[in-house]
Amino acid sequence: SKICLVCGDEASGCHYGVVTCGSCKVFFKRAVEGQHNYLCAGRNDCIIDKIRRKNCPACRLQKCLQAGMNLGARKS
């Protein structure tokens, strides 16, 4: 099975251009559409994995963007 390129959980498919799990898919959509201005309490290098993905939305969003997630991406 495929793994989420953001948190490493089991992926549910290709979302916004990137193979991700459902949790990261929903997080990314809400983060971008809600125009959240997340700030990292650390050094913008928090570990984002299945267990810690909820700890720092700033670093999670950064990881989504680095993976290439794009709200305008067509479903493939």
Rank of each mutant, 00 (worst) to 15 (best):
R74L: 09
L39I: 10
C24Y: 01
F28Y: 07
A31E: 12
K54E: 10
I48Y: 04
A31F: 06
V6T: 05
V19L: 09
R53K: 08
F27S: 02
A67H: 11
L65C: 08
I47W: 04
L61G: 02
H36R: 12
V19E: 15
I47P: 14
N55C: 11
L61T: 02
A67P: 01
V19G: 07
N37K: 14
R74A: 14
L65E: 14
L39M: 14
L61M: 07
L61N: 02
I48S: 05
G42L: 13
L61V: 06
K54M: 12
R53Y: 03
D49K: 04
G13F: 10
E10H: 15
R53F: 09
Y38T: 10
Q35K: 14
V18C: 15
A11R: 07
G17T: 08
R74D: 13
S12N: 15
K63L: 07
K25N: 15
L5M: 05
R53G: 10
A31P: 02
K75T: 14
L5F: 11
V32Q: 12
N37P: 07
F28A: 03
V18M: 03
I3V: 04
D9R: 04
Y38D: 10
C24K: 00
D45I: 06
S12L: 15
A67S: 09
A41I: 05
V6G: 01
H36C: 10
A58T: 03
C59I: 00
L65I: 05
Y16V: 14
F28M: 06
F27G: 01
S76F: 06
G17H: 04
R43Q: 08
Y16I: 04
R43Y: 08
H36P: 12
Y38M: 06
G13D: 14
N70P: 12
G34E: 12
Y38W: 10
H15N: 07
G13L: 08
K75E: 15
A58R: 11
C46K: 01
V18I: 15
A67R: 09
R74E: 15
C7S: 00
A41E: 15
K25Q: 13
C59Y: 00
G42V: 13
E10F: 05
D45K: 08
Q66W: 11
F27A: 02
N70H: 11
C24V: 00
E33D: 10
H36Y: 10
C4Q: 01
E10K: 14
R53S: 07
K63A: 08
I3C: 04
Q66A: 14
G42S: 14
N55K: 14
K29S: 10
C14W: 10
I47Q: 11
I47T: 14
P57L: 05
S23I: 02
K54S: 14
S23D: 14
C59E: 00
I48T: 11
I47F: 12
E33N: 07
K54Y: 11
N37F: 03
Q35E: 15
C4P: 00
S12M: 15
S76L: 12
Q62L: 14
K54D: 11
K63D: 03
N44I: 02
V6R: 00
D9A: 15
L5N: 08
G72T: 06
S76G: 08
K63V: 06
I51D: 07
G8T: 08
G72V: 14
C46H: 12
R53A: 14
K25H: 05
